[in-house]
């Protein structure tokens, strides 16, 4: 359902052209659990941004659910992000002045969903993620694990088809990290496609499909019979 065809991405740094992605051909199917690994500078974050429509390919084509999304304008791409893609970031990216519940509500506000429906959906999610008693707390009153759970609730509130997680455990201690990872993996049962970018081999090894990147190229793409559940 996601297909990258000959995707290149080059940045201009000073007067030099730096290739972050070189001729990527990749196909991700619905419901897959994919980890993207590689050292820093290997292009794995650029790949994630590309998949999340935050970045545009310098050349090549991005097909999402059969449609070419690399040619869409700003407003159409924003709509695709809103409806099909969820992001989880290493540093959580919660809006500090909003409460946990308001942060979860944010994507639905941007989508223009009516107030009562928003409240109902936020309540359900907060309960599912064990955050009900933290709903009115500001992010700085939450622990790291709680913050990331709020962020995951926010990423899933619009029922996206793809969840893109960039080092989701990077700012968490080991135990909390595992809990967050379990939460993400639980979403696979709902048929979500989960893409986790990490440089931690132990975490990457949990995915059925492991992609290794180096210098903007996919160097290995292996599927295992891991069962994370």
């Amino acid at each position: 359902m996601i297909e990258l065809q000959n995707v290149c991405r080059t940045f201009t740094v000073g007067d030099q052209q730096v290739a972050a992605l070189r001729d990527i051909n990749l196909r991700l199917d619905a419901g897959e659990y994919i980890s993207i690994m590689g050292p820093s500078g290997s292009g794995k974050s650029t790949m994630l941004n590309m998949l999340g429509l935050l970045d545009r390919p310098s050349s090549g084509t991005y097909l999402l659910d059969g449609g070419n999304v690399s040619d869409l304008n700003d407003e159409q791409q924003a709509r695709v992000r809103r409806e099909k893609i969820g992001f989880v970031f290493q540093s959580f990216h919660l809006v500090p002045r909003l409460t946990a519940a308001q942060n979860v509500e944010l994507p639905m506000i941007l989508a223009g969903i009516p107030g009562e429906e928003r409240k109902a959906r936020v309540n359900v999610l907060m309960q599912n993620y064990g955050l009900s008693d933290r709903a009115d707390h500001k992010p700085d009153q939450l622990s790291g694990g709680q913050r990331q759970r709020v962020a995951i609730a926010r990423a899933t509130v619009m029922n996206p088809t793809v969840l893109l997680a960039d080092e989701p455990t990077g700012n968490l201690d080991r135990n909390t990290g595992w809990e967050v990872l379990k939460l993400l993996e639980g979403l696979l049962q709902q048929g979500i496609t989960l893409v986790v970018v990490t440089h931690d081999g132990e975490i990457g090894a949990r995915a059925q499909r492991q992609i290794h990147m180096l210098d903007g190229r996919v160097v290995s793409d292996e599927s295992t019979q891991n069962d994370p559940k």
């Binding site: 700003d74 407003e75 924003a78 709509r79 695709v80 992000r81 992001f87 990216h93 944010l106 941007l110």
Partner: peptide, 11 residues
């Protein structure tokens, strides 16, 4: 973040 959550530039 707003952009990542699906807010177009206009919004």
């Amino acid at each position: 973040l707003l952009k990542a959550l699906g807010a177009p530039g206009k919004q």
